[in-house]
């Protein structure tokens, strides 16, 4: 079993490496010379040459890549071209904010999707299933930004219960923080849960209709025992995979939600950095996001291996 886990770990690290190369290459394609961009109209040939030297732009792309990789590994993410601060410093606050948002969203999403998935699976074909499935379908077909804008229109503008923008930097208390973060969290949860409920329902139904659950019932075991000890443990594996898929989606989807609510997280910073061509920040955020995605998949894979007696 540990061999399996180590192989997964190795593959994850390899993927990270490959991704770093791909992203670096993509960013390389961004038009315009970084030095020109920074100095703008004040550029003189001498200042340009000096800045280029400072930014190592005279080296080849390959050399710059390894340079960057080396500094990454020693924890140095470079300096932001826009803010002229060390990147790590610059983005760590944002990372924390996004982590907060994601954390809240996950906390809400897990019980909601599991509960709804179980209900629709057990009562499949009946009214509860149809009703929930219709609502879920509608949410699944609305893009996150539409859900966000709708929520703002209803709860922030019409009803004025919650603030329309999530400028959490201005929060003075935890209560206020919660109010500010509520709408973006609900938006993410709504979008994620929709997919999860449908997928959970399918995998739960597969388990519920399996031969071994039938056997457990024919053994005369009480329903709770059948569900809890025969059905659920075998549905956990797929449930974990589904959650991993949704978390992966969320890592990308958070960009849109943060833009809608002007939430000070790394998603919005990403969009801004791309507009300003702030290369070091773009690279850093891409690596952080991809790293988070790969880590999530790795954890999910390992959990599935641990849970499945056949793989242990």
């Amino acid at each position: 079993m540990s061999k399996l886990v180590l192989t997964r770990l190795g593959m994850a690290l390899l993927s990270l490496l490959a991704v770093s190369a791909i992203i670096f290459w993509c960013v390389e394609l961004l038009p315009g010379d970084a030095a020109e961009r920074i100095l703008g109209r004040n550029a003189t040939p001498e200042s340009l040459a000096l800045l280029r030297e400072k930014l190592n732009l005279n080296l080849s792309a390959g050399e710059r890549y390894f340079d960057w990789l080396r500094s990454l590994l020693s924890g140095d993410f470079g300096v932001s071209l826009v803010a002229d601060r060390p990147v790590l410093d610059y983005i760590s606050g944002r990372i924390a904010n996004t982590a907060l948002l994601s954390g809240f969203a996950l906390l809400l999403y897990i019980p909601i999707s599991i509960a709804l998935g179980i209900i629709t699976a057990i009562y499949r074909g009946k009214f509860a299933d149809h009703a929930i499935s219709v609502i879920v379908l509608i949410f699944m077909c609305l893009p996150e930004f539409v859900i966000g804008i709708l929520l703002i229109s209803i709860f922030a503008i019409k009803l004025a219960w919650l603030p329309p923008l999530a400028l959490i930097g201005q929060a003075n208390s935890f209560g206020e923080l919660l109010r500010l973060i509520a709408l973006p969290t609900i938006t993410i949860v709504a979008a994620m849960s929709a997919y999860a409920v449908r997928m959970m329902r399918e995998s739960l139904i597969e388990v519920l209709e399996s031969s071994y659950v039938l056997m457990a019932r024919l053994k005369g075991l009480p329903t709770w025992r059948v569900l809890l000890f025969h059905a659920l443990p075998n549905a956990l594996g797929p449930a974990i995979n589904i959650t991993a898929l949704n978390v992966a989606w969320m890592i990308g989807g958070v960009v849109v939600v943060e833009s809608v609510f002007e939430f000070p997280g790394i998603g919005r910073l990403m969009v801004d950095s791309i507009s300003h061509k702030d290369v070091p920040v773009i690279l850093a955020i891409s690596m952080v996001m991809t790293g988070a995605y790969i880590a999530t998949n790795l954890i999910a894979d390992v959990l599935v291996i641990l849970l499945n007696p056949k793989l242990r």
Binding site: S211, Y212, M215, F229, H230, P233, N234, L307, K310
Partner: peptide
């Protein structure tokens, strides 16, 4: 094989 619960 199919009728014995794999996780127990």
């Amino acid at each position: 094989m199919a009728s014995l619960t794999p996780s127990m």
